[in-house]
Amino acid sequence: MQIDVISLSISGIVLILLVLGILYSPAFNRFDQRLHQRLVKTQKNIFWKIIAFINEPKLVIVWDVLIAGILINEGDYKLGLWTLLTLGVTDGAGYVIKHLVKRNRPRSHLSEEEGYSFPSGHVIGATTMCLILYTLLRRITTSYLPLILLIYWAFVVISRLNLRAHYPSDVLGAVALSVFCFTVMQTIYAALFLEG
């Protein structure tokens, strides 16, 4: 079994440092709040609300189930199951961390945004789905796929900051968690189904 130790180590360390900073460092939280205020200068508009809606965590689950359904319909049951479990494990880990950290959203967030702030559920979903799609499609599509996925991902990240739903560390924590869980699930898949 081969594991991507670098991705796992970096994402795990970043996630742990962010959680510790949020929970135990007033200086880190002040820095994060100032960075949030500097980054969020634009007016909220309908474009960013549409991006946020399309990437609503519950809707991302629907996209994931559709992708898994296509894979299963094509006879690739193992990859379909991996697709479901990868997002499920990542979302589950995000839910647990949200309720352990219990970080409030920025004061200027939209009133319709509910729940805790760290990590961003939208960014967890977008990052995980981009990693899944890249893994599934990289052999059959053009070289533009990484750029397309990167632009999509960047729009989701910008929307979460622009709508004042999250601090920058919430976004970074979501990316770190997604990369960590994706790497673990990819390693498990390879160990179970690809190695003899």
Results as ranks from 00 to 15, higher is better:
Tyr95Phe: 14
Ile10Leu: 05
Thr135Met: 06
Ser117Thr: 05
Gly80Ser: 05
Leu150Asp: 04
Lys102Trp: 08
Gly12Thr: 11
Leu131Pro: 04
Leu35Trp: 04
Leu85Cys: 10
Leu85Glu: 10
Asn73Ser: 14
Val40His: 01
Pro26Leu: 13
Leu39Ser: 06
Thr142Met: 04
Glu113Met: 10
His122Cys: 09
Asp32Glu: 08
Tyr95His: 07
Val60Gly: 02
Val14Cys: 01
Leu149Thr: 07
Ala68Met: 04
Asp76Tyr: 03
Asp64Glu: 12
Ile70Phe: 09
Ile16Trp: 00
Asn73Phe: 15
Leu79Asn: 01
Ser117Asn: 07
Leu137Phe: 11
Pro146Gly: 10
Gly80Leu: 08
Leu23Ala: 10
Tyr144Trp: 14
Asp64Ser: 12
Ile124Ser: 05
Leu39Asn: 06
Trp153Lys: 06
Ile22Leu: 01
Ile70Met: 00
Ala93Pro: 05
Pro26Ala: 07
Ile140Trp: 07
Ile46Thr: 15
Ile148Asn: 01
Thr90Cys: 10
Leu131Asn: 02
Arg107Ala: 15
Asn55Gln: 11
Leu110Ala: 11
Leu18Lys: 03
Pro106Phe: 01
Val14Ser: 02
Leu110Gln: 09
Leu71Pro: 03
His122Pro: 03
Gly88Leu: 09
Tyr77Gly: 12
Ile97Thr: 06
Ala52Arg: 05
Arg105Ile: 06
Asp91Arg: 09
Phe31Trp: 12
Leu8Glu: 06
